[in-house]
């Protein structure tokens, strides 16, 4: 006689194993480990001449004063490269720790919009070196201002465990400055999963929504707290604030940048599964052009 059911019912021990695994996983914390980011060599790339490059580097030295003291500065001007391969070869030879450049490099005749330009696009994916994008574009640059970088916002959809992101943000922030650790969960994606859960009779939809949302917020919040504790322990003199919430990622970040005095956005660009730039990073780097961005 067959039993009237569609799905195999998990046994008591299966359920208990899963329950205890969950209890132990909740107890797991991803701890932050502070490390001093060493930037000894900075390459400033422009599509202009030496004068322009020097001006840019002076702006940068005001913006990141501690780099001015420590780092060796290299200038790559428009006459040194004709195409992307040339630029990649120069970077491979000089092997800088940080590249400073602009969006839409060498594309002034195209009146570019909503793009990083081919040079930056390729460099973000083929080089492991962090790239600092100056505000505006190469044809229409925005002034960097005369002050040091005091407000840095880390923007990500997966904050937990990303020590590199936090350490770079801290390294770029002036003493007594503020670092906002922002994690925005995509609410559109969350709603899609909930719709699927709503079609599964074995799962209580309301409970699932509450519990999943709670965990999605708890993981980055705990990590952010670990960052605060870790930086305090390391004696780093920065104010750390956390913003963890649900929302439409690009819109929320646009609102957050407008709300806080942000001088620099720090974001990850590498997606290990694809050559193209990480989705949220690309969207932010072409939409929030008025703020400098550090792409890791």
């Amino acid at each position: 006689m067959s039993e009237p059911r569609n799905h195999p019912v998990p046994s008591r021990s299966d359920e208990a194993i899963d329950e205890f695994e969950s209890i132990f996983k909740i107890s797991e914390r991803t701890l932050y480990h502070y490390a001093d980011v060493s930037i000894r060599k900075v390459a400033v790339i422009t599509d202009g001449d030496q004068v322009m490059a020097t001006e840019l580097s002076n702006d940068m030295k005001r913006f990141l004063p501690h780099l001015a003291e420590q780092a060796e500065w290299q200038y790559v001007t428009g006459d040194q490269y004709q195409n992307v391969n040339d630029l990649l070869r120069i970077m491979a030879e000089s092997n800088p720790d940080l590249i400073v450049t602009s969006r839409c490099l060498d594309e002034s005749s195209l009146v570019p919009q909503h793009t990083l330009g081919v040079y930056v696009d390729v460099m973000t994916q083929t080089l492991s070196t962090p790239i600092l994008l100056l505000p505006g574009t190469a044809p229409q640059p925005h002034p960097l201002g005369n002050r040091a970088c005091e407000g840095v916002m880390v923007v990500t959809d997966n904050l937990a465990g990303d020590d590199q992101l936090v350490n770079h943000a801290v390294a770029c922030t002036a003493a007594k400055g503020t670092v906002w650790l922002c994690h925005v969960e995509d609410d559109v994606l969350f709603r899609r999963y909930l719709e699927a859960i709503g079609r599964i009779p074995e799962i209580n939809t309301e409970q699932a929504q509450e519990l999943i949302a709670e965990q999605l917020v708890a993981i980055p919040t705990q990590y952010a707290q670990s960052c605060i504790d870790g930086l305090k322990k390391a004696g780093v003199d920065r104010t750390i604030e956390q913003i963890v919430e649900f929302g439409h990622q690009v819109n929320r970040y646009r609102q957050l940048v407008a709300r806080y005095p942000v001088d620099l956005l720090v974001t990850n660009t590498k997606d290990k599964d694809q050559l193209a730039m990480h989705g949220i990073a690309y969207a932010l780097s072409v939409e929030l052009t008025e703020v400098a961005q550090l792409l890791l």
Partner: peptide, 18 residues
């Protein structure tokens, strides 16, 4: 012995994975 195996076995899975 069953509960013991469930608790320690689950923790072993999580901790060795970490």
């Amino acid at each position: 012995n069953v509960t013991a195996m469930i608790i320690v076995g689950s923790l072993t899975t999580v901790s060795l994975s970490k």
